[in-house]
Design a protein around this nucleic acid. Structure first.
Lengths: 343, 343
DNA sequence: GTTAGCACTCTACCTTGATGAGTGCTAACA
DNA sequence: TGTTAGCACTCATCAAGGTAGAGTGCTAAC
């Protein structure tokens, strides 16, 4: 059996109606609502075919049909009219991205908020890789007696500051000397690459400032450790899920929100399988908690380099055309904002 | 009508049973479960009195009784046996607080997590006041060509770093000079206190580095601005609320979680009306969203100075004795950890 | 190939009745 | 005078039964 134009029209009608109403739709209703020029009986026959093809299914014998995962997939790939954002939406996004926000984190939380507001769904933003955290440069600044501010510039440009204890009162010269040795020996190394031999060198050159070095190394271990990655994911509009009829059941809400509290699964969810825009529908998701959900995600770039991803999570029954348009526009906007910022 | 010993015993029984089961309890069940030495009929009469006194109420005619807000209040004030933590709980808290965590924020998120885990309720932690954000000291460090790292030490000891643009390539001496002037003129001032006259002084002394100064002042405005206050509140264990039978209704969950997304109401909720431990029961809460909830909160100190508060939010039907003990212990532990840290 | 008609199916919803927990009241008891 | 047993009454909950409505598949006619 093959798909023909009429079958396509009917499938499109079913998907669109179900997206709008969340109710199964029957042949009679289709005939009434959509002007297909054929009677409900004909539609009924076609629907039987569509069911055999696996594109629609019946929740129970005498309910209407709803799209299956495969039906949504066919809809997204072949039936959907690409949609443009309306003027209002474009204006909102442009107004937001016109704000010159300096902190990367703020750009990301803004993006996340905007995405969830525009789609009425949950947004996910994967912040930029911190890159391989390798040592760039270190400075010491005076703080309290017995403590100094250690400023670390990583090779990727990220700057952090931390306060560490130093035993005796060191002079500015001694501090500068210590920093100098670190800067000379460690540049370009990640903490795991710091070999014992290197440590030996540092210790032997700076035997007097043992406490300072120990504390500094401890701190470096914490800073350069790769599990900084942990807070790279940002969530927005989780409450929107509660408005979706598919989450009227408290049990589902609980499992959903439990996953929201963890980072790893969400990261998996949003990390796209390929550059550009990805649509993952229902059971295509690996996580069983999200088998009733779809994810639209896309990568964003800085200076032509893919560094992160944004996405929208919603029930399988979501307005794909619209959400895809929004996610697409947002990634472009984000790419632009970030590129401008890092000029 | 007066409370007598028997009425007190019965009220205590009702409150304790309701806390444990979340079901209304009737006279017969009380007579069976609690050995009060009188028959159910007598208890029935006493319960009629307790209802008249406003301490208990009936959800509907033939259900048992449940405590009213006033009943809980009387229980907390007069009937409750003060409870100590069990060994396991103490050990968990002590183990956690033994970890020497340097970042203040981490101490707070840890506290929040611990509180919600021990109580199975939602925890609220109000981070320390940043204090009046006044300028302490400034340093410049080299970064990229045309950019420098500006390190700001506020008078309260908080250190921040930001990258700012500087026009031409300035020498280290020039940078140091600029920082020197700032440090000399601005120490102890909040940004709103920086008068035009002071700005004039700075500009006239540093006329050559106009771009640097403009950018630095912009950044200072952002850093020292008081609305930093906004992210002072930390929430933990919000999901625990979903396990409470009183939140089996999705509508309630929605309004609750909506409030969780805002900061101001939560701050109001947790800010104690007086030093030390506070118990706010049901309708005593100002926020209508929390009229079915109680809050146990307490202030914590650093070096004898009250700087923040921790609290637990749960349904009115919560185990007051236990939660109070936990909150009390946690604030002491937190006070100790923070004092040790800032020694 | 399309359509009208019909028997059939199944859910959602309402009604009904039984059950059980709980109450208030009264009268008897110590 | 306080306590208790007994009884009639109330009300929520739950299961059983019945109905309406939406939808289907099949058949026969167009």
């Amino acid at each position: 059996m093959q798909m023909d134009e009429r079958k396509r029209k009917i499938l499109r009608a079913i998907v669109q109606d179900y997206i709008a109403t969340a109710e199964p739709i029957g042949s009679r209703t289709i005939a009434r609502k959509f002007d297909l020029g054929v009677s409900s009986a004909t539609i009924r026959n076609e629907m039987a075919d569509l069911e055999e093809l696996g594109f629609i299914e019946q929740p129970h014998t005498s309910a209407g049909r709803i799209p299956s995962d495969a039906g949504y997939r066919y809809f997204v790939d072949c039936l959907m009219d690409p949609q443009a954002l309306n003027a209002e939406e474009i204006e909102i996004i442009e107004r937001e991205s016109a704000k010159r926000i300096n902190e990367l984190q703020e750009v990301i939380t803004h993006t996340s908020k905007l995405l969830s507001e525009l789609t009425n769904l949950t947004s996910l933003v994967l912040g930029p890789h911190k890159g391989k955290s390798t040592f760039g440069k270190m400075h010491f600044l005076p703080y309290q007696p017995g403590q100094v501010i250690m400023v670390i510039v990583k090779e990727n440009g990220v700057v952090e500051n931390h306060i560490i204890d130093v035993g005796e009162n060191l002079t500015a010269e001694e501090l500068q000397h210590v920093a100098g040795v670190f800067n000379q020996k460690m540049r370009g190394y990640s903490i795991s690459q710091v070999k014992r031999s290197l440590l030996h060198e540092i210790y032997s050159e700076l035997s007097r400032q043992r406490l300072l070095i120990d504390n500094a190394l401890d701190m470096l271990r914490a800073i350069l450790d790769d599990n900084e990655e942990k807070d790279r994911i940002y969530l927005g509009g989780t409450l929107n899920m509660l408005n979706q009829p598919e989450f009227r059941d408290l049990g589902k809400v609980k499992t959903l929100f439990k996953v929201f509290e963890e980072n790893e699964p969400l990261k998996k969810l949003i990390t796209p399988r390929q550059e550009g825009l990805n649509v993952t529908i229902g059971g295509e998701n690996i996580l069983k908690e999200f088998q009733d959900c779809s994810v639209i995600s896309a990568t964003y770039k800085v200076n032509g380099l893919t560094i992160g991803a944004v996405g929208v999570l919603g029930p399988t029954r979501m307005d794909y055309a619209k959400v895809i348009a929004i996610v697409d526009f947002m990634t472009r906007s984000l790419t632009e904002v970030l590129t401008r910022r890092r000029r």
